[in-house]
Structure formats: structure tokens, C-alpha cells
Write a protein that binds this DNA or RNA. Sequence first.
DNA 1: ATGCGTTTTTAGCGCACACTAACGACAAGT
DNA 2: ACTTGTCGTTAGTGTGCGCTAAAAACGCAT
Lengths: 231, 231
Amino acid sequence: MTGTGLRKGAQPFTPAVEDYAKTLYRLEQQRDAPVATGAIATRLEVSAPSASNMVRNLAQLGLVTVARGRGARLTPAGRELARAVIRRHRIIECFLMDALHLPWDSVHGEADLLEHAVSTRVAEAMWDALGRPVRDPHGDPITPSGDDDPDTDILEPLDACEPDAIGVLVRVSDAQPEALRYMAERGIAPGLPIRVISREPFGVGQRVLIGDTEHIIGPELGRLIFIERTA
Amino acid sequence: MTGTGLRKGAQPFTPAVEDYAKTLYRLEQQRDAPVATGAIATRLEVSAPSASNMVRNLAQLGLVTVARGRGARLTPAGRELARAVIRRHRIIECFLMDALHLPWDSVHGEADLLEHAVSTRVAEAMWDALGRPVRDPHGDPITPSGDDDPDTDILEPLDACEPDAIGVLVRVSDAQPEALRYMAERGIAPGLPIRVISREPFGVGQRVLIGDTEHIIGPELGRLIFIERTA
DNA sequence: ATGCGTTTTTAGCGCACACTAACGACAAGT
DNA sequence: ACTTGTCGTTAGTGTGCGCTAAAAACGCAT
């Protein structure tokens, strides 16, 4: 891979380390258990040995403890780093959309590049300039400073909601840009009221009212959309 | 130095290459001649061998031609790269000051970090959001897209101006943050009218009217301040 | 021309991070 | 109990980019 260049005044951790911490955090919070190195490798699109090595590296930095046998867990320090990176990422996403008016689906990728170069100072200045928003454009929470995502457990994936469920579309996973583009085209975005009309058979998906438009949401998409139930 | 981490979607050139191109450009334009590798090393604060190696690297990338014997010159491609980086840098500086209200003296350092992570798309979006300004906060020109700095030759360093010279303070070199802090404290900034009152003997410097305040400008500072003469 | 100081390059190394190929450890199936 | 497939790890490489120590080239003064 390409070398690092002259990054003297940069963050205390390398971009790679930050990325691993972030990924660890994500996976750890998905199911609360030690994270397999293979999962990390898949998620970061690196080879298994690369992930294996880097996990050892993180352990040496005190960011991770390797449970004997299988899997790694973040230490408090690691968790703090991960949360700091995620916070920067989300602030940057907000910023790119609200201040620079970049299209929804490109914001996540740009933020991935920027999150390692933007200092905390700059990120906080962005946050202030935006009026300290509470969620990013995909509905992910921007937590005060080092808290856990408060509501990931409250939210339900649309996919899992039975007909007549009512709520607010709060979050849309930013993992797949094409999905975002698809949704943007149809006006599906966080903040809209949502109601499940019915579930179509044969795996077609759900008929859903979002805002005042009816949509057919396939199961793939349904897993990326999260709602806060009101009924 | 630290490794690069996962920078997949990034710029076509590494941060280091961009930094060398930028420096080459700067030095080449200072005196129009091939640039000695030692000068590059000094400017970038790396060892002479490092600079030497990287210059060879740039040559291989087609960004530079190494004049036999001494010194390197940018090719058109190299010049274009350098100008793109410099343009990004200046837009970012503007942005940090005008949109995020960061202090004058910290803006340059942050921009140095960011200029390699901000894509052209984002930089141009920043520029638009700022109303396409023509100069950055230090008075350096933000040229339309790939032109040469138009006026560096028109400007005169304050240091070289004789008493009674009148003009506008256009540019302040951003090379030394402490100097910027000093000037910021005293309200010295680009855009102000300026008049040289007298030159004090024994190397003390010049008495100068900037805006409507009188200042004593020592020779060190006088070399960092550039004015556009009107008389 | 010869020798000296400066400048540049060569040689060899370290570190971060990726990769492939090959090896080991364990669950499950026969 | 033995094979097999799925993990994970070790071993060894490559690339970017920095470094020091030593050699080579240049430029100037004698």
C-alpha cells in the first residue's frame, strides 16, 4: 500500500489504527461478544493475516485485549478512540451535506477519507457552525462526546416490523451508497413518518407508507432502514 | 514515519508526493531556476537523502525532470499537481477562517493536514459555499483553476520599501505561525492601507502606518509582509 | 592541478501496512 | 478415530517513506 507521507502534526494514531478501532466498535456493538479477526478482515476488505497482525498491533497499543482463543475486545481506551473517530465522521457527514450540499450518497465516502485528517478542534468547530446537530444525515446520533450510541437498541429494522406498525424513520444505514442513491431518488430520508401497510409474500418485501408516498421495500433495503416505533 | 493506513479512495498521488510537488513549485517560483535537492530537504525538514530519493521518485512519476548535474524542475504535469494542491490548501484556509472561525495563526497548519484528504470535489464545494473568494486569509491568491499566481511579482516586501511608500497590505507570509499571532494581536492583516513613515537606524526596522495605527516593523517581519504599491 | 568544504548520492536500515502461501487447531461428518 | 472444511496464525515479501553513515561529485581557492 501507499506510504504515509509527511504527517507530522496529525492524530496520535495512524489512520489504519483508527479504522480498525472503528470497525471493532461497530462489530462489538452488533453482537456483544469478542470480535473474530475474520469479521474485521471482511469488514475492512483486507486479508485475514493483515487483520490478524493489526489486531496484535492494537493490543500492543492498549486499545484491545485479545481474549485467549478467539476474538478481540476493545479496552476503554480503544472504545474512546473509536467513539472519537465515529463522532468526527458523523460531524463531517453533516457538514458535507448541510454546509457544502454534497449529494447524500457521496457524503459517507468523503467522510471516511476526511475523518483521519480532521483534528478534533476542526471537527468541533464544524459542529458548532452547524448548530450542534444531534443526528447526522443518515440519522446516526452525534453523541455529546464519548457516550455510547444511546438508541441503537431502541430502533427496529423496518424489515422486522409487522404490518400496521407506525413510527418515524430515524436512521438509514450508510453502508451502501447505491441503496442511498436509490432512496434519495424516491424521497426516502430520516425524519419522515412511516407506516407498514402489509407484507407481500414470496420475499418481495413490505408495502410501506413513508411520508405520504407508498413504497415497496424489499428485504435487503428493509434491513438498512431503522424506525422508532410509536405503535 | 507512520504508515499510510487504508486510503483507497484517495487522491491519485500520495501526500508525500503532493508535498514535494508543492515545495518544488514554491522554490522554483522564488528564483526561476532548477531547485537544489538540499533546498527541498531544508524546506520540508527531511534529510538530504530523503529528498534526493523522493525527487527521483517524482521524476519517475513524470512530475519532475532532473537537470543533469544540479537541481530539478517541475514538468507541466508536476506544476499542475502543485497548483491543485496549493489551490486546495488556500480554499481550506479560507474555509477554516471564514466558516469555522478558527484563529488566524492555526489555520495554515490545519490546512496542511487537510489538503491531502480533501477531494477536489469537496474543495470546490467549499469554494462555492464561501462565494468563490479571490484571496485566502493571508492574502495569497486563489487562482481560477490552474493558472500561475498572477501577482507574486508585483508585490513588494515591506522590508524593501523606502519611506513614504504607500500601498495596500495584500499578503502576509503564512510560514511562521508566531509571526501571524503577533500581527493578529496588533490588528495587522491583509486589506489594510499602509504607509512607510521612516526607517529607523541600526537594524531596528521601519515605522509604518497600517490602517490608522503606527507600528514598528523589524526586518524579520518586514520580509513577511507584502504590499501592492500605489506610490 | 590539488586539496578542502559543501552538496548530493549510494548503501543499508527501520517502520507501518498490505499481500500470498503454507501451517496449525478445532467442529462436524463419516 | 480419521478426514474435511473453516478459522486463525506464522513466515516471508513488497512498497512508501523516513533515517544514518559513508562515498562520490562539484566548485573554489591555493
